[in-house]
Computed example of a mutant assay.
Amino acid sequence: MSTPQKHTTSERRIDLDWVRIGAFGLLIFYHVGMLYVSWGFHIKSAHRLVWLEPLMLFLNPWRLALLFLVSGVATRFMLGKYDRLALLRARSARLLIPLIFGMLVIVPPQAYDQVVESAGYPAGFLDFYLRHYLSFAVQFCPGPCIVLPTWNHLWFVVYLWVYTVALLGVLALWPPLADRLGTRLAAALAGPWLLILPCLLFVVWRLALFPNFPSTHALFGDWYNHADYATAFLIGFLLARQDSVWSELERQRWATLAVAAGSFTVFILLRAGLGATLAPPPALKISAGVAYGCYQWLAMAAVLGQARRHFTADGPVRRYLTDAIFPYYIVHQTAIIMIAHALQGSGLSAGLEASIVIGGTVLVCVSTYEIVRRITWLRPLFGLRMEAKQPVKVIPQPA
């Protein structure tokens, strides 16, 4: 039976473990949804589900920023266990080994299925891999124009490693910076400012950077995403040990959720064209950007507050998924694309097709983890420690 954990400033935040598990878990459903909406994706289903787009937009503004925020908290706690150099080694092993393995082994089938569907590539996978995938060049233009090799969904790993390296570089020059800035930021975010100030920051990024730097996940030149994700990462890092902030997030959880819902409603209505006859397009675009930026932070704050209140129970499920979720993340998009590609032309309904893709992807994720965690040399390729943690044996003392 799981037991609730008291709110403390300990190095194990069960509520944030659940947030991380939930945010990564949403990726399976989100990326399946990408098969059916009008936005660009590596491959597309024959079905288009217009009603799905508002649901996708409900998640899109905050799901990834929330992961970076939780990663920032984890980085701060790791600094309590390791010195900076040891932390860099640990995070590099955890991120760069799976990244390189993923780019060489996991991601290539995604790129192959994409060029088959988009460019009508006639040859087999081995021909594609040897002739094109390892070319280190832009390929298949003017069709999909893919830079190969690619990291596709593993961009998150790259960005997190870069932010960690940059942060550790700054701390090497000024070690006390984390504690001083964390204390000052917590004081500045007292009361309603906890909801207002971060909102303003995300609004500025949306209005000032997004129009000129749309999302690419290509690392270089992706300035809007860097502003968004690095901000979330730093917020998590600086506030990790500021228990007053986490208590305030919990206290304001329902008010935050209500305001987040209002901000999202305004954004969706403006995006749908409501008010087009009442205000000029620039004003509507600015209003939509304000609503989007505020919704980003308020949604994250609502999730964090609710999790701190309701998701503090530990147990075997949490412990299992905490280790499993990163290998799930590594393989999930390849599974989605390969299964969806195999179903092309099957004539299945959208509901049945999506159910097969989701069920097959979950099966691939679970099977992969169950195999990988049992084979020592495979574990680091999927972001796991070389050896599984063993329970500590308690030796009874003689009376």
Rank of each mutant, 00 (worst) to 15 (best):
F264M: 01
F264Q: 01
V266E: 07
F267W: 15
F267S: 10
L269T: 00
L270P: 07
L270F: 03
R271M: 12
G273V: 06
G273H: 06
G275H: 06
G275C: 08
A276E: 15
T277Y: 15
T277L: 14
A279H: 11
P280L: 12
P281E: 02
A283K: 10
A283F: 14
L284M: 08
L284T: 02
L284R: 08
L284V: 02
K285T: 13
I286W: 06
S287K: 08
S287T: 11
A288N: 01
G289V: 06
A291L: 01
A291Y: 06
A291T: 00
G293V: 06
G293W: 05
Y295L: 01
Q296T: 10
Q296C: 14
L298T: 00
A299V: 05
A299D: 00
M300E: 03
A301Q: 00
A302V: 00
A302S: 10
V303P: 00
G305R: 02
G305Y: 03
A307L: 00
R308G: 13
R308K: 14
H310W: 15
T312F: 02
D314K: 13
D314G: 13
D314I: 06
D314S: 15
G315R: 05
G315P: 05
G315L: 12
P316Q: 02
V317E: 04
R319F: 10
R319P: 03
Y320F: 14
L321Y: 06
L321R: 01
T322V: 14
A324I: 05
A324R: 03
I325F: 05
P327K: 08
Y328F: 15
Y328T: 03
Y329M: 09
Y329V: 08
V331R: 03
V331M: 00
Q333L: 12
Q333R: 09
Q333C: 09
Q333V: 11
T334P: 07
T334C: 03
T334M: 09
A335Y: 04
A335H: 01
I336L: 09
I336C: 01
I336T: 04
I336E: 06
I337G: 10
M338H: 15
I339F: 07
A342N: 08
L343R: 00
Q344K: 14
Q344F: 09
Q344G: 09
L348C: 04
L348M: 09
S349F: 07
S349L: 10
A350N: 01
G351F: 10
G351Y: 12
L352Q: 12
E353S: 10
A354N: 06
A354H: 01
S355N: 14
I356G: 12
V357C: 05
I358F: 15
G359F: 09
G360H: 11
G360V: 03
T361I: 10
T361G: 01
L363E: 14
L363K: 13
V364A: 13
V364T: 11
V364G: 03
C365Y: 03
V366A: 13
S367E: 10
S367W: 12
S367D: 10
T368L: 02
E370K: 13
E370N: 15
I371C: 12
R373K: 15
I375G: 07
T376N: 12
W377T: 02
L378A: 02
R379G: 03
P380A: 03
P380F: 04
L381F: 01
L381G: 05
